[in-house]
């Protein structure tokens, strides 16, 4: 375990030394994703924009989702149900998609780059690293669309006039980097572990898409945990879901985009998820580091 910790502590300097390589990999990957498409470099922007529009439309207009009690919706200055649904869904779906995308792409990354692993001497932990960086690049673009949307809604659509009176709604946005950084640590650690295990057991590559699907239903992406707890007789389901690390991540993201008054930033979830994320990174990176010497013989 101490060796895991010390190798994880060396990771930032390794990544910094190979910053050029990471950048080149990220650029190659982005170019590959949108290669041959007409809109090319617009897609990273277009993709989350369309996603926000579709989810907003489906959840607010078609499904008519109500996320608040009627009393809360009736309070003076409350924003419309449609806006609430859009903000709630987007703040969960964007990080969720990023997680799934990163894990699905990380898992086969060592096997896919077998020519590099075999023929070039470089720190191979950069492979899962660049993969998650690409996914987070897309998350950042999505959030860069969501944040101004949220700001506009809270400033102008909520009752208070003038807009300056509504600035307090945006207070929690300053904490937004926290869930992003913690999520990156968590996802990169897990991605490294999966990528390393997949070298020796290719079954992992088959299981991950299924596993993430199941995981999604046990993560409050499309629902509020409080709502679920009310509906189900079985209290244990709700408490079991709190054992899911991503429950806390969702709570953190939602804490940054409050739509009801009196919502505190979920510091308890922040502490729990920070511990989980750091531990995941140390273990995932440690396993990858310990096994990588054998990769060239197996891929």
């Amino acid at each position: 375990m101490p060796s895991f910790l010390s190798s994880a502590l060396r990771f930032p300097s390794v990544a910094a030394r190979h910053a050029d390589l990471l950048r080149a990999f990220v650029r190659r990957d982005l170019a590959a994703r949108y290669e041959g498409s007409l809109l090319g470099k617009l897609w990273p922007l277009l993709h989350p924009a369309l996603l926000l529009a579709v989810y907003g439309l489906v959840f607010s207009k078609l499904l008519g989702v109500k996320l608040r009690s009627d009393e809360a919706a009736a309070l003076p200055g409350a924003i419309g149900d449609g806006w609430v649904a859009t903000i709630f869904m987007a703040s969960g779906i964007l990080p969720w998609i990023c997680t799934v995308d990163a894990l699905n792409r990380c898992t086969p990354v060592v096997v896919e780059n077998n020519n590099l692993i075999k023929k070039v001497a470089f720190p191979s932990e950069l492979l899962p690293t660049y993969t998650t960086l690409v996914s987070f690049f897309q998350l950042l673009i999505g959030l860069a669309l969501l944040v101004p949307l949220y700001a506009c809604v809270m400033l102008f659509a909520s009752g208070g006039t003038p807009a300056a009176d509504n600035v307090h709604w945006l207070r929690n946005l300053v904490w937004l980097p926290l869930p992003i950084v913690l999520q990156w640590l968590f996802v990169t650690g897990l991605g490294m572990l999966l990528a390393a295990v997949n070298v020796f057991m290719r079954d992992v590559g088959q299981v991950i898409p299924l596993a993430t699907l199941v995981w999604m239903f046990f993560t409050p992406v499309f629902y509020k945990l409080e709502g679920l707890a009310k509906k189900t007789e079985e209290e244990w389901v709700a408490s079991a879901i709190q054992w899911n690390p991503l429950y806390h991540l969702m709570a953190l993201y939602r804490g940054c985009f409050p739509y009801e008054p009196g919502v505190e930033f979920p510091w308890r979830s922040a502490a729990i998820f920070a511990a989980i994320a750091l531990a995941t990174f140390v273990v995932g990176h440690g396993c990858f580091h310990r096994w990588k010497g054998h990769f060239a013989d197996e891929v």
């Binding site: 020519n115 023929k119 001497a121």
Partner: peptide, 26 residues
């Protein structure tokens, strides 16, 4: 030089691949 062209990416131009390949090789 264990193998020539390792790390070349087919979608990039020759010029882009020169830079990529050099960086990959450290």
């Amino acid at each position: 030089l264990l193998e020539l062209g390792t790390g070349f990416y087919p979608g990039f131009t020759g010029r882009q691949n020169i830079v990529l390949n050099g960086i990959v090789n450290g």
